[in-house]
Amino acid sequence: MDHSNRIRVLVLGLIQHHDRLFVAEGYDSVKQDKFYRALGGGIEFGETSLDALKREFQEEIQAELTNIHYLGCLENLFVYNGKPGHELIQLYQCDFADPKFHQLEQLTFLEDVGNTPITGLWIDCDRFRSGELQLVPSACLNYLQ
């Protein structure tokens, strides 16, 4: 089945600590450009976005979340590696329950799709606000504190 013309439904968790944002680093090989996005993933049929958020953080980095607040729904139309994409994103603000995550320089984990290694890291929010680094979807910038 061709998934290229489907709308994906995702959940992302914005985690800020001392004006840093915890993000995953991505790379578009066609644009030859790095980008960053909050951690999260697909919402499965019959699963609430809140349950999906908790599951994704548990699966990807074995992290429990706390102080979870729903922010809103974003619609994201984009081109990645030369292919158009369309997402609806349930966006949450949250914190790591375990403060050890605040000390991490970076963390490498495997994404469940294709077992691609992903790097999670803390980045100063001003680097996104200034446009030096690209946060996707860009509407997430509106929710940074």
Rank of each mutant, 00 (worst) to 15 (best):
D19V: 08
P99S: 07
E60Q: 10
E47C: 09
Q103G: 05
G26Y: 14
G26Q: 07
D51I: 02
D28C: 03
D98S: 01
L104A: 02
Q90L: 02
F78R: 10
S49P: 05
P117A: 13
G85I: 04
A38Y: 00
F35L: 01
A52H: 08
D112F: 13
K83I: 12
G46A: 04
G26L: 06
G72S: 05
Q106V: 00
F78H: 14
Q93R: 11
G26K: 10
Y27N: 06
E60M: 11
L104D: 07
Q93M: 02
I89V: 12
H69A: 07
L21N: 07
S49C: 04
F101Q: 02
I43V: 15
L104I: 00
T48P: 02
K100Q: 01
S29A: 11
Q62E: 09
D51R: 10
I43Y: 09
L74C: 00
H18I: 11
I43G: 02
D28I: 08
L65D: 06
N81L: 03
F57D: 05
L65T: 08
Y70G: 04
H69E: 13
G26T: 15
K34L: 12
V30H: 12
Q32H: 15
C94H: 00
F45S: 14
E64G: 02
E56H: 15
F45I: 14
V113W: 14
F22W: 12
D95V: 05
K54A: 02
G41T: 04
L21P: 03
G72N: 07
N76F: 14
V79S: 12
V79H: 10
R37E: 11
Q58N: 13
K34F: 15
E75Y: 11
G41L: 00
T119W: 04
D28N: 10
K54S: 02
F57E: 04
Y80I: 08
S49D: 12
E111A: 13
R20H: 15
L50I: 11
V113T: 11
S49R: 02
N67I: 03
Q106S: 14
Y80W: 14
F109R: 08
